Amino acid sequence: MDRLEYRLWLGEENYRLLYFYESIDLPQIITRRECEFFVKDGVTYRQVSSALECDTFVIYVEEYERGRKEAEVESNGLRLEVRELDAENGHPVIATLELPSHLDVMAYIGNSFTYFHGKEWLRDSSEIDEDRKVYVLYVTATGFVIEGENNR
């Protein structure tokens, strides 16, 4: 098991410890590191960079936006929401997946393209929303339609 820290960028190579996680497994660290955004206590942070310092993984973030803390989503495992990148319409949910492991989450968020409802979607970004206990993958439609294909 490893240690993970989120550090807030204060400018000019100055950082402050925000959150730390003891005894966190490597697949979860790698999945979190793949996420450009991190949501906790109603604050959305944008990843600036990451590092491995001795036995500690570090994700450096800057504050992106503040909002209200949202309620936790009920889930039997790890939940991944796939949402269309469309702020005007509240980023509508395209698909919701219950996945057994962080490696399964990585299998989705680590790709440039995914396919749902017979359409191809281009990855924009992903986030770990600790308030709601979900991963979110933001995508945009490419316009490519898969004829006769039955996929998620």
Rank of each mutant, 00 (worst) to 15 (best):
M1A: 15
R3L: 10
L4R: 07
L4F: 07
E5Q: 12
W9H: 09
L10C: 11
G11L: 03
E12M: 10
N14Y: 07
N14F: 08
R16P: 06
L17V: 03
Y21E: 09
E22G: 06
E22C: 07
I24Y: 03
I24P: 01
L26N: 07
P27C: 01
Q28P: 04
Q28W: 04
Q28F: 08
T31N: 01
R32V: 01
E34S: 14
E36F: 11
E36L: 13
V39Y: 05
K40L: 10
K40A: 10
G42N: 07
T44M: 12
R46A: 14
Q47N: 08
V48Q: 07
V48I: 15
S50K: 04
E53C: 00
D55G: 11
T56F: 09
I59E: 00
I59Q: 01
Y60F: 11
E62A: 10
Y64G: 04
G67P: 09
G67R: 04
K69D: 03
N76Y: 02
L80R: 02
E81V: 02
V82L: 08
R83G: 01
E84Q: 12
E84P: 07
L85R: 12
E88Y: 02
E88N: 02
N89Q: 14
G90Y: 02
H91L: 02
H91D: 08
H91C: 05
A95F: 04
L99Y: 00
S101Q: 00
H102I: 00
H102N: 08
H102E: 05
L103H: 10
L103P: 10
D104R: 09
A107P: 00
Y108L: 06
Y108R: 01
I109V: 03
N111F: 09
N111G: 11
S112G: 07
S112T: 11
S112A: 14
F113Y: 08
G118S: 02
K119R: 06
E120S: 00
W121A: 13
L122K: 15
L122W: 05
D124T: 15
S125L: 06
S126C: 12
S126D: 02
D129N: 14
D131W: 02
D131E: 05
K133G: 09
K133C: 12
K133Y: 09
V134M: 03
V134Q: 01
V134L: 07
V134H: 02
Y135C: 11
V136E: 15
L137R: 13
T140L: 12
A141N: 03
T142Y: 12
G143F: 14
F144H: 13
F144Y: 12
V145F: 11
G148Q: 07
G148F: 10
E149K: 15
E149L: 14
N150I: 14
R152Q: 15
